[in-house]
Design a protein around this nucleic acid. Structure first.
Lengths: 238, 238
DNA sequence: AAGCTTTTATGACAAAAGTCATGTTTTGCC
DNA sequence: GGCAAAACATGACTTTTGTCATAAAAGCTT
């Protein structure tokens, strides 16, 4: 499989402003810029594999990537869905461990790879950047704590409704009266994200559709009634 | 409720060697030492509350503490069980958020409180310490990713077996042929840790007892057969 | 020691969710 | 455009787990 490279200047990257690299000194940014490799990936290709050693950091310039763990029975659980501007693989890099998850392209992607030496150098000589990274990691951790608690005590229905609302935040395209989730996930992917079986997702989504909480638009989902969906996400007793 | 203080010198603390503070310069350590407040807590007392603003870092000198989230129905999910040498509350501090969880004393505890200013100062002027903190946080995150995936796809039985083995690592006291878990958790706490109902834990623990995987010793549990327990923790098909 | 509260235990039942089988639709590809 | 594969859908059934009721046991307090 041939690697299709592309070029982009970090300084000119559209996503710089919402990325962790925002605020780097020109020298630091150009150090990153001059040492990166940018590759185009097709849907289905893997960026890195669980159990392998990280050698650098991935920065998404375009497309979408899922990061997931596979259990013994081959059941997948999606930890994150990354979009342009997001970093991938820093967790394992900073904990000095092997990758704990696999990253696969969901929608054709353009991804820059930064060798760990360059990342670490910028990190070390730039305490402000370091602080931002720490903050980001700890925020992420707070999100994971929340999600764990939900996995522990919420029903699949509640979690699915919650996932729809969560993706609405990241991928929602506001319409007049509804929001299109600009991400094409298979029912299987939804199941991996929510932590359930594919059939259950199919049934529940079709329930939500019957209840006019959502509608289907090709492979994408339109959220029609976020408020009622939020009620579904919380608790039945409420 | 009166605060019972106590005194301890960080330099002389038994847990210094396994703590993040290990390796600090004498000056840094004494800065921490001179500005800390040490308080004794009784079982059931709270250290901090979900939704409140963190003002510093807690360092456990003795006892055990559970950190948990409460959901809307009042169901508890235990995120961590902290023991001597562990830090508490750094996540919210570093992400500059409110506490995402509540910390309650499980077994009478002695806990030192370090004002955030002092913690941040040491953190800022000491890149090696910073790096250790980051590494620790990212390792913790890896553990949480693993646990999330288990919550998503493992049965309660598997998770309970897994939790027994996990606590064996932290609290196991090796005997001739078995390991006593040196931590007294109620059935309700076990349920909060595993993410299930109290009755289910009661039933499963008594199953495990019938199968001679564990035995009860007062309020504590003795692991009789870690290997078979590990089989229970993994998958049925295996 | 008695009486209260909390914890542990057990049974019966209901609800939620997983699994398996099968069928239909969509998609990708030559 | 037609074929194969993948994705989606639905029904039937089983298993797991939660819930509620009740009771026994253990811990505290006076």
């Amino acid at each position: 499989m041939q690697r299709k490279e592309f070029t982009i200047d970090c300084q000119l990257c559209t996503h710089l402003k919402d990325s962790l690299f925002n605020g780097l000194t020109p020298e630091d940014l150009s150090r990153i810029n001059n040492h990166k490799t940018c590759i185009q990936y097709k849907k289905g290709q893997n960026i890195f594999y669980e159990g392998t050693r990280p050698t650098g950091l991935f920065c998404i310039n375009g497309g979408k990537v899922k990061v997931f763990k596979n259990n013994v029975q081959g059941k997948e659980f999606i930890l994150y869905i990354a979009k342009p501007g997001d970093f991938l693989g820093y967790r394992a890099l900073l904990s000095e461990e092997f990758y704990g998850a696999t990253a696969t392209v969901l929608e054709d992607a353009k991804i820059c790879f930064i060798q760990k030496e360059n990342f670490f150098e910028v990190l070390q000589k730039n305490p402000v950047f370091m602080k931002k990274v720490v903050k980001q990691v700890c925020q992420q951790m707070g999100i994971m704590e929340e999600r764990m608690a939900e996995l522990a005590h919420k029903s699949v229905r509640e979690r699915l409704a919650g996932s729809l609302l969560m993706l609405k935040e990241s991928y929602g395209m506001e319409g007049d009266d509804s929001v299109l989730l600009d991400i094409a996930l298979s029912r299987e992917d939804w199941a991996s994200l929510v932590g359930t079986a594919t059939e259950t997702v199919i049934r529940l989504l079709s329930d939500f559709k019957s209840d006019e909480l959502i509608s289907f638009e090709g492979k994408k989902i339109r959220v029609l009634d976020p408020k009622r969906l939020a009620k579904q996400a919380d608790l039945i007793v409420a």
